[in-house]
Simulated assay, not measured.
Amino acid sequence: MKAFRLEELEAQRAANQGAYLQFLRERNMSVGLYALDAGQADPQQPHGQDEVYFVVSGRASVTVGDETETVARGSVVYVPAGVVHRFHHITEDLKVLVVFSPPES
């Protein structure tokens, strides 16, 4: 079994001084923790994999293609492969679990 604690993942991510920490990679998927501070810009580019975002904490807007939604703790967002997307108007520090399928390259 592989089990993870959010606090430990966040500490690892912060120690590496990056917005993203991939902590699980398997044949058919990968999972990471993505964090953006309030007011920070999201520099993402479209990915070659389908993605699911689960908002762990924070508040922001997310635009996927030409649709925009407000997200907060508990929100789940699906992003098809190749679609332009980004978080913006981040009003509370944002922490998001990201699942890529197939695994992010």
Rank of each mutant, 00 (worst) to 15 (best):
Y20M: 00
Q22S: 10
Q44D: 03
V55Y: 01
G65E: 07
P43L: 00
Q40M: 10
F54S: 14
S75V: 13
G65P: 03
R27K: 15
E26C: 13
Y53L: 06
Q40P: 10
V76W: 08
E51G: 07
A72K: 06
Y78K: 05
Q44A: 03
G58W: 04
V31C: 15
Y53D: 02
G18Y: 13
Q49L: 01
H47K: 06
F23M: 11
E51V: 08
G48E: 01
G39S: 03
Q45K: 15
V77G: 04
G18C: 02
Y20F: 15
V77Y: 08
A60T: 06
D37H: 01
Q44M: 08
V31D: 01
Y78N: 07
L33M: 05
E51F: 08
A35W: 00
S57D: 15
T63Y: 04
V62S: 02
R59F: 04
A38N: 05
S30Q: 11
P46E: 07
N28P: 00
T63C: 05
Y34K: 12
V55W: 09
R25S: 10
V62M: 02
V62A: 05
N16K: 12
Q40K: 14
L33R: 08
E26T: 11
N16A: 14
L24V: 13
G32R: 11
M29R: 15
L36S: 04
P46Y: 11
T70K: 10
S75D: 06
H47C: 10
T63W: 04
G39M: 01
T70A: 15
E69H: 02
Q17I: 01
P43G: 05
D50G: 09
A19M: 06
T70N: 08
A41K: 12
Q49F: 11
S61I: 12
A19H: 03
D42T: 04
Y34N: 06
F54Y: 14
D50K: 13
V62N: 02
S75N: 07
G74C: 05
R73L: 13
Y78I: 02
A60H: 01
A19G: 04
Y34C: 03
L21E: 08
G74Y: 02
A38V: 14
E51S: 09
E67R: 09
R27L: 14
V62Y: 03
F23T: 03
S75G: 09
R25A: 14
G65T: 00
P46I: 09
E26G: 13
S30L: 09
G48S: 07
T68S: 01
F23D: 08
T63I: 03
V52M: 10
D37W: 08
V56P: 09
V64H: 09
E26Y: 09
V71R: 03
G32F: 10
S30Y: 11
A19I: 10
D37F: 02
V55L: 09
E69T: 08
L21P: 14
F23K: 10
L24T: 10
N16H: 07
L24D: 15
D37Q: 12
A41Y: 14
Q22N: 01
E51H: 08
A38Q: 13
E26V: 12
G32P: 01
D66Y: 14
F23E: 09
P43M: 07
G65N: 09
D66K: 12
L24G: 02
G58Y: 06
Y78D: 01
A38T: 14
V76P: 05
V79Q: 07
G48N: 11
E67T: 00
M29D: 11
V64I: 06
E51W: 12
V71S: 00
V62G: 04
P43R: 01
V71H: 02
Q45L: 15
V79F: 07
